[in-house]
Amino acid sequence: MNTAPLSDEELVSQFRNGHLHAGSILYSRYKNAIYSFCLRMLEDSDGAKDTTQETFLKMMTKIQSLEQGIAFKSWLFSVARNEVLMVVRRKKIVPMEKYDDEVNVTEPSTPLTLAIQSEIHEKIEQAIQKLKIAYRETYMLREIEGLSYEEIAQATGSTISAVKSKLFKSRVALNEILAPFI
């Protein structure tokens, strides 16, 4: 018996044909990823919950607009991204102090503490939050979600060269922020 999970494309096709269960699987598959993306972009759990809800409502109502050749995952993240940007614009949020050209680094604590892997992950998480919003979304889509350059370009409405550039700048910034810890 074949127990391989259905691909996104197969589920999208079923969902388009009225099988709501396929939509339920897609929701289960991406709910935490979308919520985490929104949470890291907005740094507000209520806002993240609302934008996640809007994202999946749009998934349900606008799935027919998903064009052939565009990956469902990048399409869903582009929907989430638009929702996030709408909230940012509406509330005129300037997401925290964002890393641009200058680097503000605090002194590291004890070497023993720094040796703990989970601590490093925490530092990485904090460092990602210090990136400018445009860099942060690109970096998260690449490193956490594993989207290709092309998929990120589709999701963010930019070009592949812009994606490469943002990723490079993100890495330089993270490198400098995390230099004292690594």
């Binding site: 709910k31 919520y35 985490s36 809800q53 490093i120 992950h121 990485i124 995390l178 690594i182």
Partner: peptide
């Protein structure tokens, strides 16, 4: 350093979606 961050970022965990949303969907 970039490689360490690159590897570390892959292990960043997802936050769990609130139960309220699960109930709605």
């Amino acid at each position: 350093r970039t490689k360490v961050v690159h590897e570390g970022a892959k292990n960043v965990e997802y936050a769990a979606v609130p139960k309220e949303l699960d109930e709605k969907f």
